[in-house]
Amino acid sequence: MQIKFPKLNFKLFIIPLVGTLMILISTGLMYLFGFKTFEQIQDHASKRIVLLAVETFLAVSVIHYILKVFNKKFPWEKSWIFRFFLDTMVVFCMGAIMAYYFNDRTTAAVRNFLPPNMPLELSFIMPVIMNTLFVCVVELILLYENHANMNVKIAIMEKERINSAYSALKQQLDHHFLFNNLSVLSSLIYEDVDKADDFIQDFSKVYRYVLQINDRDLVTVEEELDFIDAYLYLFKSRFECGFEYRIDDMSAVNQRFLPPLTLQVLVENAIKHNEVSKQNPLHIRISHQDGLLSVSNNHQPKMEDVYSTKTGLRNLTEKFNLLNTTAPTFKLENKAFIARIPLIEADHD
């Protein structure tokens, strides 16, 4: 069975570097306050610093490997008491190993560098303290890594959820668009064959746009306006004097973005819920102001009840929410229903 060692995290190198820095600072303070002469420091400091750096890195590497194994086989969430016991055993076992190494190899160096009355028991106490700190630091590093990995997984899952939900919404609106226009065509066939033929030609142009943008999450304002102009013309050819529309100059915002078929949803909503007749013509205006696209119509609700799934505007709002941008607003102002749509900049993520 081949043992697979986990990759060492570069953060582990910080621990011996910090230990080395602490020794350098303490050595400088000893010299500054006269506890050690320059000759004493020169004789022992360099050797001790190198030994400390090597020993610290080896100890941290071993602890990192052990705790990685513990995290897989004995995670904290299963039994924190047992895991605490295991971590404590690691501290004392590593401390005993380091104490043995100190006593056998570096006792003389430690003795020469420490004050004369310093007990040799520190050769065991110090490794235990050091390994306690090492275990705590490595545990924090592993906890941070697990947290970061979990956030990445959550972000990936959230992105997949958003893409799936957005695709479903877009597909639902596309089908809604198709079925409604087929109903329009069906009614025109019995009224005027020539007009129905013209309608088919214009409808083919409109639906070509729907097919072209089917895999796109955003389109430019210019593209959407070209489409909605053709789309509105279909209704103009059907309702004649009962329907009027106006599209203001949009050159200032032509290269901004919005979800495809946004304007189609708003226009369809206006036609569906309002009276369209020669006596009470419906007026639709598309304009822009302060970075918002405005679609307004005179509010004249139909007398009869209109069947509605009430999903059009709600789905449109959800599309903007999924794109992580400001949601559109819908208000009734001065006998006019106004939808204000935020436009998305090119650098939007």
Rank of each mutant, 00 (worst) to 15 (best):
N9E: 14
N9L: 04
N9I: 04
L12I: 13
F13T: 10
L17A: 15
V18G: 03
V18C: 12
V18M: 14
L21D: 02
L21C: 14
M22A: 11
M22Q: 10
M22G: 05
I23S: 12
L24G: 08
I25R: 01
T27V: 13
L29D: 11
L29I: 14
M30I: 08
M30N: 09
Y31T: 12
L32D: 13
F33G: 07
F35W: 09
F35Q: 14
F35R: 15
T37W: 03
I41F: 02
D43A: 11
D43L: 05
H44P: 00
S46F: 13
K47Q: 09
R48M: 11
R48S: 03
L51G: 09
L51K: 06
L52W: 02
A53W: 02
V54G: 03
T56P: 03
T56E: 05
F57E: 10
A59K: 10
V60I: 06
V60M: 02
S61G: 13
V62E: 08
V62Y: 08
V62A: 15
I63S: 12
H64F: 15
Y65H: 11
Y65D: 07
Y65V: 15
Y65Q: 06
L67V: 11
L67A: 01
L67F: 01
L67H: 06
K68W: 15
F70I: 14
N71I: 01
K73I: 15
K73M: 05
K73A: 12
F74Y: 03
F74A: 07
P75C: 05
W80Y: 11
I81M: 07
I81H: 06
R83F: 10
R83T: 05
F85T: 11
L86T: 04
D87G: 08
T88I: 10
M89F: 09
V90G: 03
V91P: 04
C93W: 10
M94F: 04
M94C: 11
M94A: 11
M98R: 02
A99D: 08
F102P: 03
N103D: 07
D104C: 10
D104N: 04
R105A: 07
A108S: 10
A109E: 09
A109S: 07
R111N: 14
R111G: 15
R111D: 15
N112H: 09
F113G: 01
F113L: 13
M118H: 06
E121G: 08
S123F: 05
S123V: 12
F124L: 12
F124H: 00
I125L: 06
V128D: 03
I129G: 05
I129Y: 15
M130C: 09
T132K: 00
L133K: 02
L133Q: 03
L133I: 12
F134Q: 00
F134T: 01
V135C: 01
V138L: 03
V138S: 03
V138D: 01
E139T: 14
L140Q: 13
I141Y: 08
I141F: 06
L142H: 13
Y144V: 13
